[in-house]
Design a protein around this nucleic acid. Structure first.
Length: 422
DNA sequence: AGGTATTCACATGAAACTATTCTCTGAGTTAGG
DNA sequence: TAACTCAGAGAATAGTTTCATGTGAATACCTGT
């Protein structure tokens, strides 16, 4: 960095230095947070409010392991952010704490959603073996062999094993029903050890979709986590906020607004905490002394926005092309002041999409596929579509873009960059 | 006027195809005994 | 000789295409008054 500096650039650097200085100092002085970590997703609180009943249920179902007996398989379900994982982990810790002396209890936690870790049968076994102190190559061995190694490892002495599969529904989409079936029947192959399974799922209908044989053995016991209502969310937020923020920095009503927003999103506590944290960060960045209701709105928008941008950037190219063509049409309609019929139809999108493909040298997909892509966008909440019949003009999807107007230019830019770089 | 037949422009399903990723096997390599 | 590594065969999978069938209502076409 030994460029020749003109006077002006020196001046500039000084100015930016001052700027940075002032940002930092205001950051240090003005901080609203006492301990921001409390609001982070990875934080484990020592008390879990409004889940006493569920925790008690889980604990009583799993309690027999302390007497050295096998427990029933347990299936836990509830929407995201209802405290499932937290509660199960809690019970796990308590059980392990009480088992210090007998030392033959093993409770392992596996998250099936983390892709690199475990989304195939092989990887799950490999992961388990690793956690149990064994060692397998990352790839190369036949699954059967890994399976045997696993059996060997757990059956070499008397042990009680509980395996917790978080987000188990993700695994089953990728893995055959067989995997679960084998697991549930593992006990018959073990001579000394005993194994039980705890499945955690977001999907309430998950149990209905799997093989009946698995269902009956996996769902020996079930615990349901209902969504939090706004009042319960408020309690949770209050409790965390008192630890996360300095006293008196939250404006009246901030907490209740947060919980109202989150309650609308099927009572997702994680969402509520994110909201509060981001609102705090926003207020802090703006040098405010208090977190206001406006900051919550802003945070809500930001979360929404990030979600959309995340989807847009990570979607495959063909999806991006389709989305770009929708945006094109929307903008064209606006330019023509054609606001009366602001909805778009499949055919239009497809034609435009084909043109776009030609221009960018991409192979166009068939209309059939684009139709599916459109309905996937619908599911993701990027567009709103409904199938209508226009009589003689046929039957088609009526499409409306639901990305906030202010965000469209940014999305478009991302799309164009992504497509042209190919 | 009232009824029914037609027709459009796609939706929706199922099966077949394909390219990529995973799994598995055996040959070759290494290292320890 | 057992353990490890790795290339390539074969299986599994996701993404797509092809083919087939379905659909709701505006419009066209009757039919009898």
């Amino acid at each position: 960095m030994d460029l020749i500096k003109t006077e002006k650039s020196i001046e500039d650097t000084n100015k930016t230095n001052n700027q940075i200085e002032s940002i930092f100092t205001s950051f240090m002085e003005n901080t609203l947070f006492k301990d921001k970590f409390v609001l982070q997703a990875s934080y484990t609180p020592e008390t879990i409010s409004h889940r006493e009943e569920q925790i008690a249920q889980i604990a009583s179902i799993l309690a027999p392991v302390l007497r050295g007996e096998r427990t029933s398989n347990l299936f836990v379900y509830g929407k995201t952010g209802t405290g499932k994982t937290l509660s199960v982990q809690r019970v796990r810790n308590e059980l392990l704490k009480r088992d210090i002396n007998s030392n033959n209890l093993i409770i392992e936690y596996i998250n099936c959603k983390l892709k690199q870790v475990s989304d195939t049968e092989y990887r799950i076994f490999a992961e388990l073996i690793k956690k149990l102190g064994g060692n397998v190559p990352a790839t190369g061995l036949p699954t059967g062999q890994v399976y045997n190694k696993f059996l060997e490892l757990i059956d070499n002495e008397k042990k009680l094993i509980v395996i917790i599969f978080d987000e188990i529904d993700h695994a089953v989409n990728k893995i055959t029903d067989n995997f679960l079936y084998n697991l549930t029947r593992l006990n018959t192959e073990l001579s000394k050890s005993q194994i039980s399974i705890v499945g955690i799922s977001n999907n309430l209908t998950f149990l209905d979709e799997i093989d009946p044989r698995v269902r009956s053995s996996l769902g020996e016991e079930e615990v349901v986590f209902p969504p939090y209502n706004a009042l319960q969310l408020q309690d949770i937020l209050n409790e965390r906020a008192s630890r996360a923020f300095m006293p008196d920095v939250l404006e009246e009503g901030v907490i209740s607004k947060c919980s109202a927003y989150a309650a609308r999103e099927h009572g997702d506590a994680r969402r509520a905490l994110d909201l509060l944290r981001i609102a705090g960060e926003v207020a802090e960045r703006n040098g405010l002394k208090k977190v206001t209701l406006k900051d919550i709105d802003f945070a809500n928008e930001k979360i929404e926005k990030d979600k959309i941008l995340e989807i847009v950037t990570t979607e495959p190219r063909q999806f991006q092309l389709v989305l770009l063509s929708i945006i094109d049409i929307v903008e064209k309609n606006e330019r023509l002041k054609d606001n009366l019929s602001s909805s778009i139809f499949t055919g239009e999108v497809y034609n435009n999409y084909q043109r776009l493909c030609e221009k960018t040298k991409n192979d166009p997909l068939t209309q059939r596929r684009v139709s599916d892509i459109l309905s996937e966008f619908d599911m993701m909440g990027m567009i709103n579509s409904s199938v209508i019949s226009k009589g003689r003009q046929g039957r088609t999807r009526q499409i409306k873009l639901v990305i906030p107007k202010a965000l469209v230019p940014k999305v478009k830019k991302i799309l164009i960059d992504a497509i042209h770089l190919s």
